[in-house]
Design a protein around this nucleic acid. Structure first.
Length: 802
DNA sequence: CTCCCTCGAGTTCT
DNA sequence: CTCGAGGGAG
């Protein structure tokens, strides 16, 4: 046989196999016996093995999977994979007319936007699976990627090729040069049950629901495993077409995809309906059919059918306005509260948690549900022994909806057996007092670092991925390190040796009654310990903002930490900063500023930080931000000192009358009263100044300012940022920049990005399909920029000639 | 002083 | 994901 006839034969086999597979998997009507199919398949496999050049990217032999990958490559989506807005508030209201009211409002809004047109909606089930994007080049499947964060996902082409119902080559000649299809990978209910049965038979772990099974199967690095799982796919949109006209309606789009050989929902499940009544009827109809469908759905989707209207409606922030998800109400289940226990969080927050008799809700078995706080428990009146309705809020977090009072156990006198819940007065972990601030919902353990729970969680927080990012330091290990006293403060992590870790592990195992006497387990322990030490070592030069975040200061999260690091630049300046200075920084007010100042004033924190700095130093310290000098005005500081009656305006007036902070500290009572301000203001100020320690604190503030300003790089001051002090708002889709990129550029240029247009907005940056923000900007007379105008502004202003 | 938005913190299960 | 609290705008 020569290569030419092999080539012919391979092509024939591919065509035949594709045809039979389509009959079998897509049309569900096999036309030849399985054995015959297998014979043809093996013949093609043999041919390709003999002549690897004969294997084409659409060969059915790829369906059985190939060599495992080391990891998935990242793929950037040319068209972002947006999620749909779920515009309907929780369907708590069981009243049908309430549900309908929201649908009617949705329809009315769309009709209004389209100037009163009669709107047809293409409606379809919302598959409960994983969104993927498929790219066909000249008809051949060349790339498949997961949704990821919507901007970029993972390359899962090898796995997707094993999904039988996905065509490797489109059924059309000539094929469009490029077609990008969006759809959902899922597992049919029957395939899920079969998979779990076989997993259980082999003693492997079973999956909680079809969605998890599909996710677990698609994310296999070894595509042969994926091939052994039965995944399905349904297309629901086209993202890009090149070389073929875009169908004029969504319905046409789906019909066309079906003709190309792509699986789409059954035609009777995706009708085109008109008006709110059509939507209502469809929603109710699908809900009734839900259980009988071969796959799980979590709602339905409504899309404006006409493409030109879709474009007219455009996008709001990250979601299209022409399409909307209407989720079914969360599934609910009845179970019994076996106990109410308290958890202690990193900040000492004591949270009641309901321990529930295990119950399946929405595909997973739930045993715990947070009760949030004492008031919440009392409001719902949850008591031990009660039968409660549980659901998964947003289909994720378990939540106790309400108590079934009729089922409450009563004593002979008709009183409930169990008492109303009360939060304990002492910490369940350390026994310290539990205190609840006036007006706050949350009670806190006062034990601080002395409380083992808080210590342990502070260390977990420190090691977390967005903080110091220490690999190998999971919850269980931290708990053990803390419980067995190998680690008291975060600095102790850096003193751990291999021997310490192995000894700790041994003692923990002993305590738990585990006997890891096999050699292999010893090796595992050593590997873990070495891995952890390497992770700790690698964390010694963190960016300053991560170190700050890692310290776990109350009210200081990722964003506040970044503000501090950007503005002050050095830990030595941040840790000594007076609260008044901190409170002048953007988005830091008096509460956060005080929290910071108190943290750094506390001796035990200072000690712990100094210890930590023996091992760790920030890698990116820099001079304080040049813009700081302009913002740290005497007036701004005065307004943030916490002097009663000293408002912003009065601070301004006062600042004009004193030479500076230090000068104010040195004024005696008489001089203060002579300042020429309203009597009530100067009286309050004089009294305030006379309180113990005030003048010393002001001197310290003055000294700190001198020091801080001496460190501001004078050259940087000379080059003001182009958008300094400007507030911008982004709307619509920019031609080349993503929202995050645009934001980063604006911030780098000293500007601020706000969420909504107001009088104080300096510029609105509008892209394609700008929405209501543009209207509002025009209304308020706010300048509107397009992307190129924005980019032009970002380059530093050109000095004008003398 | 009151709204609105963003940030922080807590939480579940695989 | 959801709640509560803080910050800033009106």
């Amino acid at each position: 046989m020569n290569l030419f006839s092999d080539d012919q034969r391979a092509a024939d086999l591919r065509r035949l196999l594709k045809h039979y597979a389509h009959q079998y998997y897509v049309l569900d009507a096999p036309t030849i016996p399985d054995a015959e199919y297998d014979r043809l398949f093996r013949e093609l496999q043999d041919l390709e093995r003999e002549h690897p050049a004969l294997q084409t990217p659409d060969s059915p032999t790829l369906r059985v999977g190939g060599q495992p990958l080391a990891q998935f490559d990242s793929v950037t989506h040319a068209v972002p994979m947006l999620s749909l807005n779920n515009a309907f508030s929780d369907m708590d209201a069981e009243l049908p007319q309430t549900r309908h009211a929201e649908l009617i409002q949705f329809d009315e809004r769309i009709v209004r936007e389209l100037d009163g047109a009669v709107v047809d909606y293409a409606v379809e089930p919302k598959f409960d699976g994983l969104a993927v994007s498929l790219i066909y080049e000249h008809g051949v499947l060349t790339l498949a990627a997961t949704r990821g964060d919507g901007v970029s996902g993972e390359n899962v082409t090898a796995n997707i090729r094993t999904v039988a119902s996905i065509p490797l080559r489109l059924n059309v000649e000539p094929a469009p040069a490029l077609l990008e299809v969006r759809g959902e990978v899922l597992m049919l209910k029957k395939d899920f049950e079969a998979l779990n049965a076989s997993q259980a038979g082999r003693g492997d772990k079973t999956f909680a629901n079809p969605r998890n099974a599909a996710a677990g199967s698609l994310r296999q690095l070894d595509s042969r495993i994926t091939a052994a799982r039965r995944l399905s796919f349904f297309a629901y949109a086209i993202a890009r077409i090149d070389g073929a006209p875009w169908p004029l309606t969504h319905r046409d789009e789906m019909d066309w995809l079906e003709r190309l050989g792509l699986p789409v929902a059954d035609a009777d499940l995706r009708p085109v309906v008109t008006g709110a009544e059509g939507l209502i009827a469809y929603y109710e109809g699908v809900m009734a059919r839900r259980a009988a469908l071969p796959y799980d759905i979590d709602g339905v989707v409504y899309k404006v059918d006409r493409r030109d209207w879709q474009e007219r409606l455009g996008f709001v922030s990250r979601a299209p306005r022409f399409a909307i998800a209407h989720k079914f109400p969360a599934e609910e289940a009845l179970t019994v509260v076996e106990a109410i226990e308290e958890q202690v969080g990193r900040t000492g927050a004591v949270t009641p948690v309901a321990r529930l008799r295990a119950v399946a809700v929405g595909g997973v078995v739930v045993t715990n549900a947070t009760l949030h706080n004492e008031d919440e428990v009392r409001r719902k009146d949850v008591r031990v022994g009660d039968t409660v309705i549980v659901r998964r809020a947003g289909d994720v977090i378990p939540e106790v909806v309400s108590v079934v009072l009729e089922r409450r156990a009563l004593a002979a006198d008709g009183q409930p057996l169990a008492a109303a819940y009360r939060l304990p007065g002492v910490c369940p972990v350390c026994g310290s007092h539990v205190l609840r601030e006036e007006g706050e919902a949350i009670a806190r353990c006062s034990g601080g670092f002395a409380c083992r729970a808080q210590r342990s969680q502070a260390i977990q927080h420190f090691a977390g991925r967005r903080m110091m990012d220490i690999d190998g330091l999971g919850e269980r290990y931290v708990d053990n390190l803390v419980a067995l006293d190998y680690v008291r403060g975060v600095a102790d992590l850096y003193r751990l040796t291999l021997d310490d870790l192995l000894e700790m592990k041994r003692r923990a195992d002993e305590r738990d009654g585990v006997t890891p006497e096999t050699v292999k387990q010893g090796q595992v322990a050593t590997r873990w310990a070495e891995n952890l030490l390497a992770g700790i070592e690698a964390s010694r030069q963190p960016p300053l903002e991560r170190l700050l975040f890692a310290l776990g200061i109350r009210h200081v999260g990722e964003s506040t930490a970044k503000t501090l690091a950007d503005s002050l630049g050095r830990l030595s300046l941040i840790r000594r900063a007076p609260a008044a200075v901190l409170a002048t920084l953007p988005d830091i007010g008096v509460v956060v500023a005080r929290s910071l100042a108190e943290f750094f004033a506390e001796a035990s924190n200072v000690e712990a930080l100094d210890q930590l700095l023996l091992f760790v130093s920030p890698c990116d310290e820099h001079d304080p931000a040049p813009g700081l000098a302009g913002k740290l005005t005497v007036a701004a500081l005065l307004a943030r000192l916490g002097v009663p009656r000293l408002t912003e305006v009065r601070s301004q007036q006062l600042a004009e009358r004193v030479a500076g902070i230090t000068a104010l500290a040195d004024l005696d009572r008489r001089a203060v009263l002579d300042l020429g301000l309203p009597a009530e203001v100067v009286n309050a100020l004089a009294d305030w100044l006379d309180e113990a320690g005030r003048r010393a604190a002001l001197h310290a503030l003055g000294d700190y300012l001198d020091e801080l300003l001496s460190q501001v790089d004078p050259d940087a001051v000379a080059a003001p940022l182009p958008l300094d002090g400007k507030t911008l708002v982004l709307t619509g889709t920019l031609p080349t920049l993503s929202r995050d990129q645009a934001r980063a550029l604006i911030e780098a240029a000293g500007g601020k990005v706000a969420g909504s247009v107001s009088k104080k907005t300096h510029y609105l940056v509008a892209g394609e399909a700008a929405g209501s923000k543009l209207d509002r900007a025009v209304e308020l007379g706010v300048a509107v920029l397009d992307e190129s105008a924005l980019l032009a502004m970002l380059s530093p202003p050109v000095a004008e000639g003398e």
